[in-house]
Design a protein around this nucleic acid. Structure first.
Lengths: 290, 290
DNA sequence: CCTTATTCATCACCATTCTTGATAATAACG
DNA sequence: CGTTATTATCAAGAATGGTGATGAATAAGG
């Protein structure tokens, strides 16, 4: 009368046995006693009134029924784990402040949307700023997390991914390769793109002048698209209005930069941990950048 | 350390509560005590350390977490039930003989394939014969099941579906409406199609002659496609070589016939029960006939 | 407004189930 | 052939889950 129900615990040990190939190893993995696992297997067979396994010598062999149940079990457990972690995720609560460079804001909305879906009870605040400033704020515990750009192999934070830097110019403009080279740069001195560009030009023996400065690409864009200056961007910051320049332009190659995640010095809050992981997962593959 | 695992039994009562809208009703449905269901709900909440429900007055309301868990639960239970019945199906074993009219053989291969997938341990034998003969064989317990055609409202067996009978002629032939009408019929007198055709013609006052007889459509086909005779078929027996005739041909309308399943008089074996159900399910909709 | 009828949560008790440690049986390995 | 590793089995204790009874809360009805 009552609907027959599989015991997921028993299915869990079943796949453990299958994975490890032995009852004892499965017991070790699941922190059960060997006798427990042995009896669990029997219990499962009794409940289904089926023979799931046979022994040839010492080795275990699953019958075709056993194999079939295994595939059911894996599917069920996958669904179970997903359901469980989803339910747990909804319990993660708190507030959380993340800092990002303005130019990366466009990269993250989908991550924020996903994060909110997973952790609807977390209040997420995002502030923009320059990388150097963000790092200071994280150290001062004004931010829980900060995603920053930096030169390769700088200390602190975890590298999320590396991106090539590119010279770019307005889409319909000829590269303006006069001497000194007119550059559009971020305003304050402490900017990674600026540092990198200046170093590259210096070692190539080229002179340059700052044709325009702004806090962000959004501010530089008009000048660049108008063809009045050249700018340094990452691939993910390229827009239809920008045209990347390759080595044939005669400009020195630019090094990779790193996108790194800094965490506040104290033990990260649960929401911070989760968002950090999510950012790592979502941004790890440089491919899927916009 | 040990992987967290949901208890499907508890999820089952959760959806019962949701479906019925009350703890008591859920208890009744699941054949538990009311107190049991009440405690099961609490247990579920305790295991997840979540609040799944609230009460407004007497009525129960699920929290958003509760609703979410419900959807997980339904999916998990669906998978569980599927897995369970699949495993049970593999235990169904034995031999089984089914009789079908030769003309319906083409309708059933997919059913047999599906049956074998569900019940690989069942040895299925299929024999062909005329409907009247098959019914006798079932009564004599020589067959476990027989799918037969018969006139409407005949006694015995369960109706699987009803099908219209059609007059048909060779695809590129003009209907041969001479008097007497040349018919291609199944050979022995005791044939349903033949009975139906003769009755229809008689009450319409038409004369006819038997131009050709055979045990099956396969035998009649050459004569009919050659335009030497008219034949009676069901819609599912139409082939590209046959053209159905509508009322504009002047032939009398033919009644529906029934496709019925006869079971051997003793209690049907488990395999027979299963195959019977499967045939009913698969053939119930006249649409999906070939 | 009081009575009556449901519905639900809680409790103690009991039965069952599950886990464990110990032991015996079986196979692999030198 | 002894040693080692793996497994099945058993008895026992612990823990879990179900039951019936009870009382509180809520809705319905006079």
């Amino acid at each position: 009368m009552r609907a027959p129900t599989l015991d997921l615990t028993l299915l869990r040990t079943l796949v453990a046995i299958a994975d490890t190939g032995s009852v004892t190893a499965a017991a070790k993995r699941l922190a059960y006693t060997q006798s427990t696992v042995s009896m669990q297997l029997q219990r499962l067979e009794a409940q289904l009134s089926l023979t799931l396994h046979e022994r040839e010598g010492r080795r275990i062999r699953f019958t075709s029924e056993g194999e079939r149940l295994l595939s059911h079990a894996r599917r069920l457990l996958a669904l179970n784990d997903e359901a469980w972690s989803d339910m747990q995720a909804r319990q993660v609560t708190g507030d959380l402040t993340l800092g990002i460079p303005e130019d990366y804001a466009s990269l993250l909305p989908s991550v924020f949307a996903y994060f909110h879906q997973l952790y609807p009870a977390v209040g997420l605040k995002v502030i923009c700023g320059t990388s150097t400033h963000l790092v200071e704020q994280v150290k001062a515990k004004e931010l829980d997390l900060a995603l920053v750009t930096r030169q390769r192999n700088s200390p602190g934070g975890d590298v999320i991914r590396r991106e090539p830097l590119l010279w770019a110019v307005g889409m319909n403009q000829q590269p303006l390769l006069s001497d000194p080279l007119p550059l559009a740069l971020y305003s304050p001195g402490a900017d990674v793109f600026r540092e990198v560009a200046e170093q590259a030009l210096q070692s190539a023996g080229r002179s340059w002048r700052v044709a325009y400065t702004s806090q962000s690409m959004a501010g530089l864009a008009p000048i660049v698209t108008a063809g009045l200056a050249i700018v340094v961007v990452t691939r993910s910051m390229l827009t239809p209005a920008l045209r990347p320049l390759d080595e044939s332009s005669g400009l020195p190659a630019l090094p990779m930069i790193e996108l790194a995640l800094h965490r506040a010095p104290h033990r990260p809050s649960e929401p911070a941990r989760r968002l950090g992981e999510l950012i790592r997962e979502q941004l790890a593959a440089p491919e899927q950048a916009l």
